[in-house]
Computed example of a mutant assay.
Amino acid sequence: MPDHILLVEDDPRLAEMLTEYLSQAAFRVTHASNGRAALEHITAGDVDAVILDLMLPDMDGLDVCRQLRAVSDIPVLMLTARGDAIDRIIGLEIGADDYLPKPFEPRELLARVRAILRRRVEHRHQPDNTPQRAAEFLRFGRLEIDPAAHAARLDGVPCELTAYQFDLLLVLARHAGRVLSRDSLMELLKGEAMEAFDRSIDVHMSRIRAAVEDDPKKPRRIITVRGAGYLFAKVQD
Rank of each mutant, 00 (worst) to 15 (best):
residue 168 L to T: 07
residue 160 E to F: 06
residue 185 L to Y: 00
residue 23 S to H: 08
residue 97 D to P: 06
residue 9 E to C: 08
residue 58 D to G: 12
residue 24 Q to T: 11
residue 193 A to P: 00
residue 16 E to R: 15
residue 231 L to F: 06
residue 104 F to A: 11
residue 111 A to T: 14
residue 45 G to F: 06
residue 87 D to E: 10
residue 112 R to K: 15
residue 193 A to M: 08
residue 138 L to P: 02
residue 128 D to L: 08
residue 73 D to C: 04
residue 144 E to W: 02
residue 39 L to M: 13
residue 131 P to D: 13
residue 149 A to T: 10
residue 200 S to E: 01
residue 225 V to K: 11
residue 38 A to S: 08
residue 99 Y to W: 08
residue 122 E to V: 15
residue 57 P to C: 09
residue 146 D to V: 09
residue 130 T to A: 10
residue 12 P to K: 09
residue 168 L to A: 05
residue 53 D to I: 10
residue 81 A to L: 10
residue 35 G to A: 03
residue 155 D to E: 13
residue 132 Q to F: 09
residue 116 I to R: 03
residue 178 R to V: 02
residue 140 F to C: 08
residue 191 G to Q: 04
residue 209 R to W: 01
residue 2 P to F: 07
residue 144 E to G: 09
residue 11 D to I: 04
residue 217 K to S: 14
residue 126 Q to L: 14
residue 228 A to L: 12
residue 52 L to A: 07
residue 36 R to P: 00
residue 226 R to L: 07
residue 120 R to G: 11
residue 43 T to G: 15
residue 77 L to G: 03
residue 217 K to M: 06
residue 185 L to K: 02
residue 55 M to A: 12
residue 98 D to A: 11
residue 168 L to W: 05
residue 24 Q to F: 10
residue 158 P to F: 08
residue 139 R to M: 00
residue 153 R to D: 00
residue 88 R to I: 05
residue 227 G to F: 10
residue 37 A to E: 09
residue 53 D to W: 05
residue 166 F to V: 08
residue 191 G to R: 07
residue 147 P to C: 07
residue 159 C to S: 11
residue 57 P to E: 04
residue 236 Q to L: 12
residue 45 G to D: 00
residue 213 E to L: 09
residue 147 P to F: 03
residue 133 R to W: 01
residue 65 C to S: 12
residue 210 A to G: 15
residue 45 G to T: 12
residue 205 M to S: 02
residue 116 I to M: 10
residue 47 V to M: 05
residue 138 L to M: 15
residue 63 D to Y: 02
residue 217 K to G: 07
residue 2 P to M: 08
residue 232 F to K: 04
residue 232 F to H: 05
residue 64 V to F: 07
residue 237 D to K: 11
residue 25 A to E: 13
residue 78 M to S: 08
residue 236 Q to P: 01
residue 59 M to D: 05
